[in-house]
Write a protein that binds this DNA or RNA. Structure first.
Lengths: 131, 131
DNA sequence: GCTTGACCTTCCAGTGACTGGAACCCCCAT
DNA sequence: ATGGGGGTTCCAGTCACTGGAAGGTCAAGC
């Protein structure tokens, strides 16, 4: 299977697939003409990567998860540890963003948003000690 | 004021301050010896930038906000528009992350996390059609 | 006056995870 | 044989810094 078919099957753009090979995440076969040749196994790996990336795992976490997936003697504790630490990072990010959202929503509410220059948003950014 | 004092006052690292000058966000004075010389006004701008960045505004949004801040004839609607679109982006990101958190938390819950290889997390990443 | 160490300067390179583009090769249908 | 739509590599750019090297400057202590 050529790269564009693998891309269509997995939803991962060809450019990204090449990048994944570049950084050693995958190593698809090569046809005689130099084209990458994706086996079902290779497509499966790409699918795995796509789903792991969609869950927000970093490339390096994906690398580790992929290795564990391949390792039939893995301990599920290792997988769980990676996932748990990623979950913690996600929760931290959600907390940050939620705080930002709170502040921003409040500021936007109190801003008239008309032609006049008075703006509590700028006032807050300028002073910080507002409200 | 030298750069490290400005950094201490604003909480923005010297490296970042230099970077902000590089990309034209700020333009501090220069002393005769070539050192940057930060006025109170310049420190005020840095403070503004620090708070805007802490609210997650991009550098370009900061640039626009800074320009509006300087423009005494601005319309608050312009500020509000920037903030509102940023808020929408934050909310979208929160939604994404919340979905990830849900999936991850569920997977982690169902994973034994022991020495055995069986792992619903990997199963989900591999198949996606689990549960 | 000299040294030392802390500060400042510039410039270059690397991060993460792609993405765009140029230049070129290959295959198939007409 | 030619045209178009694949494929290939490599280089550069994104965003917002961050680290490090090489060198200039300043204030304090001997």
């Amino acid at each position: 299977m050529n790269i564009s078919d693998a891309a269509a099957r997995t939803g991962i753009p060809p450019k990204t697939i090449r990048y994944y090979e570049d950084i050693g995440l995958i190593a698809p076969d090569r046809a005689d003409n130099g084209y990458r040749d994706f086996s079902e196994t290779a497509v499966g790996k790409l699918d795995f990567l796509g789903r792991a990336r969609a869950l927000g795992f970093s490339i390096n976490e994906c690398r580790d998860l992929l290795a564990l997936w391949e390792d039939k003697a893995r301990a599920s504790a290792d997988v769980r540890r990676i996932a748990a630490s990623h979950l913690a990072a996600i929760e931290a990010k959600i907390n940050d963003l939620t705080a930002m959202r709170g502040t921003l929503a409040h500021l936007i509410e109190t801003c008239a948003g008309d032609h006049r220059p008075d703006c509590p948003i700028l006032a807050d950014l300028a002073g910080g000690d507002c409200c």
